[in-house]
Design a protein around this nucleic acid. Sequence first.
DNA 1: GATATTTAAGACTTAACAGGCTTTAATTAT
DNA 2: ATAATTAAAGCCTGTTAAGTCTTAAATATC
Lengths: 145, 145
Amino acid sequence: MLYSKSAEYAIQAMIYLAETNSPEPVMISQIAKAYNIPQQFLAKIAQTLVKHRLLVAIRGRNGGVKLARPANEIYLNQIVYAVDGPPPEQEQCVIGLDYCSDTAPCPLHHRWKIIREDIREMLVAEDLADLALRVLEKRKIMNEP
Amino acid sequence: MLYSKSAEYAIQAMIYLAETNSPEPVMISQIAKAYNIPQQFLAKIAQTLVKHRLLVAIRGRNGGVKLARPANEIYLNQIVYAVDGPPPEQEQCVIGLDYCSDTAPCPLHHRWKIIREDIREMLVAEDLADLALRVLEKRKIMNEP
DNA sequence: GATATTTAAGACTTAACAGGCTTTAATTAT
DNA sequence: ATAATTAAAGCCTGTTAAGTCTTAAATATC
Ligand code: SF4
Ligand code: SF4
């Protein structure tokens, strides 16, 4: 919806890393298992996250991946951008017309403009540390019936 | 983004029909040409719109398709629903977690909930007649340099 | 150094979406 | 009746996203 499946997996994986907050690297296989992500697929996604300096990878025994910087300095849009590539230069018309501009917009235009901005704002504002904290809290609550 | 390419074409085609507002049926080929939609593809989309009672088709010479009811009684969500199928029953978590509910939501949850609601509202509120009117106006403006 | 373990890299497979082609059925004008 | 015209229907092709497999490279441990 907002981003690809790959980006979703990437966010989940990085939340997991922020949750555990271990100074030691964490194995891809462990992350994959915890969040139920296809392991090999996650491995490949991790590669691109490493290339984009969001993760660092340590290979060999006791290897794994860890966050490249503190969780509170990593924002969602950075992850999405890294995995899905840069967003399109020109803003897209909701109904795919090509001859339109901002003069005399159709009723959809105002609405869509606001929504698009909200989405952007959401991805820019939220950082991993916050998310991980909240997910942890939530997990605690749900384990107490 | 919000809907498939097919749904986008469907919306464009139905706007065209609302624009021309002809009591006579309009040929698929004509619509396809006007909005630069692959004709055969649009033909197939039209079929599903007919099945969902948004269009009626008249075949044979002088045939074509027309809106099944007045344009101001057709809303975007009906078109999207018809082409892309019903939206998922359970509301989706933005980051794809499956163990979450509304108790102690993560920071994304509030934001996303609002955005999702705005999108839904946009699709529910806008009807074809409005859109067609605005697109017509816009075309007029853009033709006067 | 040998070995086990872990990510890196790239080829490969599968599935879904977008689009095209061709034939068939329905309708109307002649 | 017949020919022309139009949507309906089914199958084929290309593209992209999602997922799998195989081999190579790096590293810790013995
Ligand atoms: S005014 Fe409407 S049709 Fe034009 S670009 Fe904006 S959303 Fe699209
Ligand atoms: S609280 Fe956050 S993680 Fe849970 S369902 Fe809502 S958006 Fe998803």
